[in-house]
């Protein structure tokens, strides 16, 4: 689920680019040969192109559509049924989902997820830009070494560090609070975002900060007044990914959050299917739909900027 939304965005962008690339050769055939044949070939191509996109789109979207429609099915008619249109519809599943689990309301899970996601966005926007600025613009001893080490942390799988990290946060008495999940983000521990921003900043012309320096600005001023405004596209991209990743994260909350009052949506989502007792697939489907909605809305609002952020390589605004 983590990757579906971003990839669809990328796929759409790629498809657009591919579509753009297809038109010129079609036009060039206009000059030689009969016009009718060329036009026919062009319509044929367009037809084929759109047809295959539609088929592909259907295949990709089918599971999602199945999930949404299944959430309106009675619980015992979900598994083993591949039809899209439910025979009987019911809202019971949503009633189950909204009634919460074990006395903890749905909105508690929702708010916890929201706090973590917004916290992650804020933390990453603040800390990653500052450290990226340091790596991209300040000459300090061992800069390349530190940069390489930071990139190195990207190669470490999360599962390798989880136990030492847990022991550390446990001795700091931070288990069962949001600290372990947010602290790293406020300390620029998310190397991917720092790397992304360093690469972006390296493309910004140095003349801009040099002229600011001549006008008497220090690092703080250059960072705040020159760099930050120029980094808008990459910050938006980073924020979107930070939000979606944090929202969908399951493993981190599972390890660090102990009391149900602190649980996030993905943890609650898993609670409906339990192989050792009775599984409520309907409740799970409804919960999955509800969990997906915020990410979807967030994505629709900011989708424009994602493509913008990925496409912007030089200067804008």
């Amino acid at each position: 689920m983590t990757t579906t939304t971003p990839t669809t965005g990328k796929a759409a962008a790629a498809a657009e680019a591919a579509g753009g690339g297809m038109r010129p050769p079609a036009r060039s055939t206009d000059h030689d040969g009969g016009r009718g044949r060329a036009r026919r070939r062009r319509t044929w191509r367009t037809f084929l192109y759109h047809g295959s996109i539609l088929v592909l789109g259907f295949v990709i979207l089918y599971p999602a559509a199945w999930m949404v429609l299944s959430s309106f099915r009675p619980s015992n008619q979900i598994v083993g049924n591949v039809n899209l249109i439910p025979d009987n519809t019911t809202l019971d599943n949503f009633v189950t989902a909204f009634s919460g689990i074990g006395g903890v309301s749905f909105w508690t899970f929702f708010m916890n997820s929201m706090i973590l996601a917004v916290g992650a966005v804020v933390g990453i926007a603040l800390s990653s830009t500052v450290s990226a600025y340091a790596f991209a613009r300040i000459e300090f001893p061992g800069r390349n070494l530190w940069f390489a080490l930071m990139i190195g942390t990207l190669l470490l799988p999360f599962h390798v560090v989880i136990i030492p990290q847990y022991i550390m946060f446990n001795s700091l008495n931070m288990v069962d609070t949001f600290w372990p999940l947010l602290l790293g983000k406020f300390l620029a521990a998310e190397a991917f975002f720092v790397f992304l921003m360093v690469q972006f900043m390296r493309n910004l012309p140095r003349e801009l900060d040099e002229s600011a320096r001549i006008d008497g600005a220090g690092h703080a001023r250059i960072y705040w007044s020159i760099m930050l405004p120029l980094m808008r596209p990459v910050m938006v991209t980073a924020s979107i990914f930070a939000f979606i990743w944090s929202w969908n994260d399951f493993f981190g909350p599972l390890i660090y959050l102990k009391s149900p009052d602190n649980y996030t949506m993905p943890l609650a989502l898993r609670q409906y299917v339990d192989q050792t007792t009775v599984s409520d697939y309907g409740g799970q489907m409804a919960m999955a739909v509800l969990a997906l909605l915020p990410v979807l809305i967030f994505f629709i609002i900011f989708q424009r900027y994602i493509v913008d952020g990925v496409a912007t390589s030089g200067l804008k605004g």
Partner: peptide
């Protein structure tokens, strides 16, 4: 009593992490 819960496989993932930190419930 503070309670917490998870589905069976996730439950054991969380417990084994805690066992490493000697902080089982």
């Amino acid at each position: 009593v503070n309670t917490g819960f998870a589905a069976f496989p996730d439950y054991w993932t969380a417990r084994s992490t805690e066992a490493a930190g000697r902080s089982l419930p």
